[in-house]
Each structure stands twice: as structure tokens, then as C-alpha cells.
Design a binder for these strands. Structure first.
Length: 315
DNA sequence: CGCCGGACCTGCGTGC
DNA sequence: TGCACGCAGGTCCGGC
């Protein structure tokens, strides 16, 4: 389940394979994977063929490749190929000789480059993800639009409603905290709101809350400044740990969203651990078991001892 | 405008 | 064996 660290692993893995290469051909094998491209398949393909990828940029879980149109190559790129991996999306570099994956949805044929695969493939089992072409627009604060190798003060339009993520150098805690306090909802719902802070999904939300010893239903309008700082610091820590674990093979041919899977096996303290002991409590000589609750139509994992349920929680 | 639930998807595991 | 169902969850959209 790609959240920020997994998408960043993909970004770093991808950039050296695609930067500077021209898209020579596009095969859309499943129209559903480009449904967010409102003008359809022909317009999608027409925008891509002949364009050159200048970078790979990420904000939150959104990833995009600014495109330089060779016929009009003055000035910065005006459009980008946007990718969202959804639940199961992968971006893979593959040689022409490699058979199509079972869930191959879109194939980009790139200009030849010595020692590099010819194709960039979008593979997606559950089709929650997708590709589309979008405009690049100025950011509202003038700072670079997202994490990139050569950052531009531009952002893909479809990502402009997404807040900066906690690993973005231009992330503003003050803005986050001000908006958080105005919310009338539960803390986890706020952490998952990509318009407030981006990049956090169900897994890292639970892990950050566990590290911060806060409950998912804690009302946002009662959060003190130091509590908000703590939960954001914890989110940053857990995502950086995952990035370090998944980032060991950035030059791998397979730019795989499961790159951080080793992290999940070893380091999760709450997510998916229903009925198992809370490690922090155990270290303090207390016996407690992680519990699972239904929250927002998905599972939330907490330690009932060190993340006590707030008296007036917002579920 | 903010909050919240449902829809979108497929594969896998479980129970009858 | 086969079928129905629940579960996984990021994002968008409509209702209120």
C-alpha cells in the first residue's frame, strides 16, 4: 500500500531512468487506468508522444513527470504526466523482450538509451491508481512544488489541492496547526486528509499515533501545540525509517512499490498487530494487547493502555 | 465550506 | 467443489 515513503522510493528509482528521454509511443491497454484524463485516450496519447521527461516530482502520494514539448522547447515545461499508484500501482522499467505483466495497463515507449530498458510500464491490479496529463501551475507560496531533483516553482494542477507533506522542506507547521485547530473531527481523520497534510495513509497514521501515544479519535480542536508537533515528528520519523529501509536499491531495474516491504515485517508497532502485545508496555512490565477498531470504514490499531480512548472522542 | 459515507476495484481467505 | 461474502484502502464526489 504505497504511502509517502513507497512513492518516494519509486520517484528516486525512476528519475535516473527516465529523465531526458522522449516518449515515442503509448499503449493504453485498459482505459480505466486513464479515466482521470477527461479528454480520453487519443488526447492522452497525443499529449505524450514527442514530449521529453525533464524530472520526476512528488508531493504526498502524487507523482508527476514534467514534459518538455520538443516543438516548443522554450521556457519551463507547461504540462506533466501525473501518476497516482492508488492501492496497487507500480511503475516498472522493462525491456521490450519482457512479456506483458498480467495487470499491465499503460506502456510508454522511450527513446533508446544505452544500457537502459526501452519501456516504462504502469501496472495496477486494483485500478485505484491511474495516469493522466495535467497542467503545471504556479504554487501559491512561490516555493518549489514538491520533492524533485531540479525543483520548479510549479506544481501539477491536480496536486495543487494537496497540502505539502511532512518531508517537504517548505512544509509549514504553523499553517498545519492553525488549520488543524479549526477542524471539528478526530485526529486520525485529519492526518489522512491530504488537503491538511499529505503523504500519510492508514498504516503510517496508526504508527505515528502509537509513537505519539495519542488516540485516533482525539478531537482536533483540543490538540495542544506540543501534541500536534509530536504527532507530526512521529509521522516524519516513521516515514523516514521506512524510506531508509526501502531505499536500499534505488538503482534496481524494478522500481517496485513494495520496495519498503522489509520494513513492514520488522518495524510495525501497531498496524496489523491485533491481539499481540504492545512492545512499549511490555518493556515497562505492563501487559496489554493491541486492539482493532473500525474507524472510517477501515481498521485502526491502538494500544488501549498507552493510547487511551478520549472521553469525548470523534469517530 | 466542512464533515462524512459510499463508490470505485480485484484477489485472497474464510465459512457454509 | 463452489459460491457468497468480508477485507484490504486512497481518492473523489454527493448529501447534508
Amino acid at each position: 500500500m504505497p504511502e509517502l515513503p513507497e512513492v518516494e522510493v519509486v520517484r528516486r528509482g525512476l528519475v535516473n531512468w527516465v529523465r531526458g528521454r522522449t516518449i515515442n509511443g503509448v499503449d493504453v491497454l485498459d482505459e480505466r487506468s486513464i479515466r482521470r484524463h477527461a479528454l480520453g485516450r487519443e488526447d492522452f496519447t497525443g499529449n505524450l508522444v514527442g514530449a521529453t521527461v525533464t524530472d520526476v516530482v512528488r508531493r504526498g502520494k502524487f507523482l508527476w513527470m514534467p514534459l518538455q514539448d520538443d516543438a516548443d522547447s522554450y521556457g519551463p515545461p507547461a504540462v506533466a504526466l501525473m501518476a497516482h499508484l492508488g492501492m496497487s500501482g507500480q511503475l516498472l522499467m522493462q525491456d521490450d523482450s519482457v512479456p506483458d505483466e498480467k495487470h499491465l495497463k499503460v506502456r510508454l515507449r522511450l527513446s533508446a538509451r544505452e544500457g537502459m530498458p526501452e519501456q516504462l510500464r504502469f501496472v495496477d491490479q486494483r485500478i485505484f491508481g491511474g495516469l493522466f496529463v495535467t497542467s503545471l501551475v504556479p504554487t501559491d507560496d512561490g516555493a518549489p512544488g514538491g520533492l524533485a531533483e531540479s525543483p520548479l516553482p510549479l506544481i501539477a494542477e491536480e496536486a495543487s489541492h494537496i497540502a505539502r507533506d511532512p518531508l517537504d522542506p517548505a512544509f509549514s507547521f504553523e499553517l498545519f496547526y492553525r488549520r488543524l485547530r479549526k477542524r471539528r473531527t478526530g485526529l486520525k481523520r485529519a492526518l489522512l486528509d491530504q488537503g491538511l497534510v499529505s503523504g500519510i495513509g492508514n498504516i503510517y497514521a496508526d504508527e505515528a499515533l502509537w509513537r505519539a501515544k495519542l488516540h485516533f479519535a482525539r478531537p482536533t480542536d483540543t490538540l495542544r501545540r506540543n501534541e500536534a508537533e509530536t504527532v507530526l515528528d512521529c509521522a516524519r520519523e516513521v516515514m523516514q525509517d521506512a524510506l531508509a529501509a526501502g531505499g536500499t536499491s534505488f538503482d534496481s531495474l524494478y522500481v517496485n512499490v513494495n520496495g519498503a516491504s522489509g520494513y513492514f515485517e520488522r518495524s510495525l508497532n501497531a498496524y496489523g498487530r491485533e491481539g499481540q502485545p504492545c512492545g512499549r508496555c511490555a518493556a515497562a512490565g505492563i501487559t496489554s494487547a493491541i486492539r482493532r477498531d473500525q474507524f472510517m470504514n477501515r481498521s485502526s490499531y491502538t494500544c488501549p493502555v498507552c493510547q487511551p480512548k478520549p472521553r469525548r472522542g470523534r469517530w
